[in-house]
Design a protein around this nucleic acid. Structure first.
Length: 439
RNA sequence: GUGGCUGUAGCUCAGUCGGAUAGAGCGCCAGAUUGUGGCUCUGGAAGUCGGGGGUUCGAAUCCCCUCAGCCACCCCA
């Protein structure tokens, strides 16, 4: 016998896990569409040359790849952004700009597994291609905001930064060449503290004490968003790049406020520096206030050289990605996930052995009324069937035996409340009552 | 990739110094006068003790290898 098991980092999803998963995807889709993003899909497999060399050596090493039957070198997509770059370069002529797309799909990375990190996982990306307008930056923030609200999370904070502020400062200190190691160190500020960041910068980037001190001046920038902006303006007063970054942040804050986003939802955070090789401007990360340690659940930013390896046309873009698996883990920890293993609210026990056709008819009529209905497939004893319905999380059961059929009545049980009422055996009337109580 | 920890029933775990038929709770199945779930009671099924090798009279227990998971580091398009 072959032991049934899944590959390391690959998972099965049981109904109890899959139902909230699909709900989350539905919500993301609805929010993305409300901003005019359109769905696209791309192949799981691409020619290796299309995928490789876009995210650095590490990404190439993590990518699943092999030779196909025609001896072509192919790879499995490890994110949705590189395929988008190829897609945009190939089709932008017919799509036109600006082009807004969302893409909800699985990606694969052959890396070490961790809590919340798998080798096969879902990304929910949305991006706007072909505009450098700050309107797109602001809308990206708004989408993240609306998305988390729609999911039902009441307390979250969108951390906002701009790579040009960091780049400007480094240029000012003649450290532009060392931005990689410096920003990687700076990214750990919250985690390891200023002293250790300074030590790491000295070790990996060869910064002098004075340079480290200057870079860490960033770490002392704090206060309200307005206060942070004022401090940054002082730090970067003579730096065109830095000032441009500050102006972009200001514009996003203004725009978000105008669109009705509560000011406490957005926090300027100069230590956010992720996506080092990739992002060129706005950078965002989103944290749950009650579970910050789980990390960013929705991250993204602006990248202005997205498709340069595929086309001479300039295709700047901005977007973000919902970390579906991480968010689900968080929602579970915060007990915001309702546990049900059924998708239909109404259960009909197959109670009277001789009345199968009557049950089928009732179920069909209720479905025509727009209700999800499951009919139990075996005429077991009633207690067992009700127990099944209870375990699966059905909301209502419609009990009818020979007595009820003869009287033209049935019993509607609210399984959650533990109440029951007698009603006429009529689908339209039943549906009205059920709908009024479904909430 | 590095270091540490853990793998015993479907799930969560106990199992003494190496000792004989490997346990519990939950879940599952059946029942508690033939038509009503959650609570209770009774009974039942279910384990290659992750896998392989070794030491030993004897291994869930000790040793080696391997697979998987967790934690920290590294990395994170």
């Amino acid at each position: 016998m072959i032991e049934p098991r899944t590959l390391k980092g690959f998972r099965d999803f049981l109904p109890e896990a899959m139902i909230p998963r699909e709900q989350l995807i539905d919500t993301a889709r609805r929010v993305y569409r409300s901003y005019g993003y359109s769905p696209i899909d791309t192949p799981v497999l691409e020619l290796l040359e299309v995928l490789q060399g876009k995210g650095g050596e590490e990404s190439d090493r993590l990518m699943y790849h092999f030779r196909d039957h025609g001896d072509r070198a192919v790879g499995m997509r490890f994110d949705l952004t590189v395929p988008l770059a190829r897609f945009a370069a190939q089709h932008i002529g017919v799509l036109g700009t600006p082009f807004k797309r969302y893409h909800i799909a699985k990606v694969w990375r052959g890396e070490n597994t961790h809590r919340g990190r798998y080798r096969e996982f879902m990304q929910c990306d949305f991006d706007t291609i072909g505009t450098e307008s700050v309107a797109a930056d602001t809308e990206t923030v708004l989408v993240v905001h609306d998305l988390l609200q729609a999911i039902g999370i009441s307390d979250f904070t969108i951390h906002l930064n701009n790579r040009r502020i960091l780049n400007g400062l480094l240029a000012q200190l003649n450290l532009a060449d060392q931005s990689g190691p410096i920003l990687r160190a700076l990214d750990k500020l919250h985690k390891i503290g200023a002293d250790k960041v300074a030590a790491e910068m000295a070790a990996t980037a060869g910064t002098s004490d004075e340079q480290a001190h200057q870079v860490l001046a960033l770490s002392r920038v704090s206060g309200t968003n307005d206060e942070i902006l004022a401090q940054l303006e002082q730090l970067l007063a003579n730096n065109e790049t830095g000032m441009a970054g500050i102006e972009t942040l200001r514009a996003i804050l203004r725009g978000a406020a105008a669109a009705g986003v509560e000011s406490a939802r957005i926090k300027l955070d100069v230590s956010i520096a992720r996506g080092l090789d990739y992002y060129t401007g706005t950078v965002i990360e989103t944290f749950l206030d009650r579970l910050p340690e789980i990390g960013s659940v929705c991250s993204g930013g602006r990248y202005d050289d997205l498709a340069s390896v595929y086309t001479k046309e300039r295709l700047p873009g901005i977007g973000a990605s919902l970390g579906l698996d991480r968010l689900l883990a968080a929602l579970e920890e915060l007990q915001l996930i309702e546990k049900t293993a059924t998708t239909a609210p109404v259960f009909i026990p197959y109670f009277d052995r001789d009345r199968l056709d009557d049950y089928l008819k009732l179920a069909a009529e209720l479905r025509q009324q727009g209700l999800g209905v499951e009919l139990y497939p075996e005429s077991r004893k009633l207690a067992a069937q009700l127990k099944y319905a209870d375990r699966r999380g059905f909301r209502f059961a419609i009990v009818a035996g020979s007595r009820e059929f003869e009287a033209g009545q049935c019993q509607l049980k609210d399984l959650r409340a533990g109440t029951a009422q007698d009603l006429p055996l009529d689908a339209a009337q039943l549906a009205t009552v059920i709908r009024s109580q479904l909430v």
